[in-house]
Design a binder for these strands. Structure first.
Length: 268
DNA sequence: ATGGCTTGAGTGTCAAGA
């Protein structure tokens, strides 16, 4: 396995042609998708099989939903985060929320995550985000014990540092960039993970999400909230990590861009 | 200024995302 990627597609129904095109062009070994927004019976597994990918998926109607596509089959699949919905989820939300998919692919433990948005600091959804992150931290610590080759990638909905935000003053204290969220991100890293994007020199103002409104992409008003965190063993063999802005320029784009990590020699 | 776009649900218009 030499290339893994993550992409919040904001509806797999709408984005399917773009994802198929991207797979054919880039040929990653693994692609983790978030916000598929379909139930499992509506997931387009056949279309992915047609271009040479296995798919595992955990979806629900309208919201959330994660899927992991891979050249090699996925084993030991866990489709729910233990303890995530123990605390009261925000009123009116469907439970359990489908936001995590763990799978072992060619001996690498791949944790695909769609961390809650949190809406606004102090809201019910913000409390749910922190509670969900607490459950993730616990699950991750356990998974790391049994899987030295582990990667956690997806839409974290957290911009970890000032350089990850187009206007840190504007975003100070706000959801996605609040101190508590950033502290949790640091705690996840301290479990023994590396944010591989920051292992390498990167262009100034590198972001993975831009608001659809106000020409956010053209003005590069964005945030880096999609991340690839690797265990030390995998990070040592990571040779590059980049954000592919090309799909964000398409007609009807997702508001997120794919993030890609490359390894040498093969990590499997 | 609490908007701005986009998607899904469902067919009028709202919730949710970030």
């Amino acid at each position: 396995m030499k290339m893994i990627a993550t992409w919040n597609v904001n509806s797999i129904r709408v984005r399917l042609p773009q994802v198929l095109e991207w797979l054919e062009k880039e040929s990653p070994d693994v692609l983790c998708l978030q916000e598929t927004k379909v139930t499992d019976e509506d997931f387009p597994a056949e279309a992915f099989r047609g271009v040479g990918y296995h798919a595992v998926f955990a979806g629900q109607k309208t919201y959330n939903g994660v899927a992991t596509l891979s050249r090699a089959p996925a084993d030991a699949v866990v489709a729910l985060l233990p303890g995530a919905d123990d605390a009261q989820p925000p009123s009116g939300t469907q439970t359990p929320q489908k936001r995590l998919l763990a799978a072992t692919i060619e001996g690498v433990r791949v944790l695909n995550v769609y961390i809650p948005n949190g809406e606004e600091v102090g809201s019910d959804k913000y409390a749910y985000k922190l509670s969900w992150l607490g459950a993730l931290e616990k699950f991750l610590a356990e998974e790391l014990r049994s899987h030295p080759k582990l990667v956690v990638l997806g839409d974290y909905n957290i911009a970890p540092e000032e350089v990850d935000v187009h206007d840190p003053k504007l975003w100070e204290g706000r959801v996605l960039f609040s101190d508590r969220e950033r502290a949790v991100f640091r705690r996840l890293v301290q479990l023994g993970l590396v944010d591989v994007f920051r292992k390498f020199e990167q262009p100034e103002k590198s972001f993975s999400w831009w608001d659809y409104r106000m020409n956010g992409f053209k003005r590069n008003f964005g945030l880096r909230i999609d991340h690839i965190l690797c265990s030390a063993v995998l990070a040592a063999d990571c040779r590059a990590c980049s954000i592919d802005k090309e799909p964000r320029r398409h007609e009807r784009p997702s508001d997120h861009a794919p993030v890609v990590a490359r390894f040498e020699p093969s990590i499997s």
